[in-house]
């Protein structure tokens, strides 16, 4: 088991390195840099001005060098200007003596995530606050999604083919067919529109960043939860129907155990192994949902930051965002594998 985790962690680091290099490559293509220079400087810069702006900000070095600097395995760039020295590891313009004394390596290995050009702030600070906000959203999504999905799946799967099963299965198909931007729009139209509609909830979740309450936070949570729910419910249903046709359930039935006890004590535990894996693998999809819903409801969390960073080619923020999301995706995969082995004695013993 230890070796397994070690190997998986190695693959994870390799994947993260490859992914960040791809992001690095794509964000550092010249047209992207040109756009960055024009948004940071001014829009009517000439080609020469763009060139010199990029040069003085260290963007014109070879790609592997820049990547090494970002990782922190190569010394950060410095630029000798007219009024002092600027550099990757320096804040603002400083004199030569100060530059010589300052740190030479500053990449993520040193815990320095860089500087966001859009928010004009340290990336680590931005990521921490935004992740906190998204964690709040995700927590409530899971609280709503997991129990209701399992309930729907178990209820549908315990009597295959019954009217209850048909109704709940149709419900779960409908939810899987409704992407967040469709359900979000419908929910806002029905529950939050100021002209017609019920006016039960608010159509934006901006105020939920400080004080979340039922009124301003329920719609975004419901929108994300609904799309993931159908899939988990269907998996639970499939695994439940499989368990309900197993021999030991038939034996229990023939012995005269009540249906309620069969479901609660005999079937449920075995039926919940498969959904566990699915729930963990659902995280990467939830991440997508988070981006859409945060944009739609204007909730300034991690997904909203991704859109801002990508839209403005904010290289270091974008890299940090991709590192975080890669870690989330791969960790959940690892947990689901370990959890599957742990929950399923047949695999654990063999």
């Amino acid at each position: 088991m230890g070796l397994f985790i070690l190997r998986r962690s190695g693959v994870m680091i390799l994947t993260a390195l490859c992914l960040t290099f791809i992001v690095f490559f794509l964000t550092n293509l010249y047209p992207n840099l040109e756009k960055l220079a024009k948004t940071q400087g001014n829009f009517r810069m000439s080609d020469e001005a763009v060139e010199s702006w990029l040069g003085s900000h260290g963007y014109l070095q070879p790609l592997p060098v820049k990547y090494g600097q970002w990782l922190g395995v190569m010394p950060g760039w410095t630029h000798q200007g007219d009024d002092g020295v600027t550099g990757r590891c320096l804040r603002g313009t400083v004199t030569e003596e100060e530059a010589a004394q300052g740190r030479r390596f500053c990449g993520i290995l040193q815990g320095d995530w860089g500087y966001s050009t859009v928010f004009r702030d340290d990336v680590s600070g931005i990521i921490a606050t935004r992740l906190g906000l998204t964690a709040k959203l995700m927590f409530w999504v899971l609280v709503l999604m997991v129990p209701s999905a399992l309930l729907v799946g178990v209820l549908a799967g315990m009597r295959e083919g019954s009217p209850l099963d048909r109704t709940l299965s149709t419900f779960s198909i409908v939810t899987t067919a409704t992407p967040e931007y469709v359900s979000g729009v419908i929910f806002i139209a029905v529950f939050a529109s100021s002209t017609v509609g019920l006016k039960w909830f608010k159509g934006t979740a901006t105020s939920a960043m400080d004080s979340a309450n039922f009124e301003n936070f329920f719609l975004p949570v419901l929108t994300i939860a609904l799309y993931g729910m159908g899939y988990i419910a269907r998996m639970t249903r499939a695994s439940m129907t499989e368990v309900m046709t197993a021999q030991y359930i038939r034996t229990a039935r023939l012995k005269g155990v009540s249906f309620r006890n069969i479901v609660m004590k005999h079937a449920l535990r075995n039926a919940l192994i498969a959904p566990f894996t699915v729930i963990m693998l659902q995280f990467p999809w939830l991440l997508n949902g988070v981006v859409i819903v945060e944009t739609l409801f204007n909730y300034k969390g991690f997904g909203w930051t991704l859109v801002q960073a990508a839209g403005n080619n904010d290289i270091e923020l974008l890299l940090a965002v991709s590192v975080v999301s890669v870690i989330v995706v791969l960790t959940t995969q690892l947990i689901s594998d370990i959890g599957y082995v742990y929950l399923n004695p047949r695999i654990r013993i063999s």
Partner: peptide, 19 residues
């Protein structure tokens, strides 16, 4: 590797006029 990318990030990286 491709599956570990959040789809929207990939779209934002690939589907821009600059790219």
């Amino acid at each position: 590797l491709i599956l570990a990318f959040p789809v929207i990030l990939l779209f934002y990286l690939l589907v821009t006029p600059e790219i």
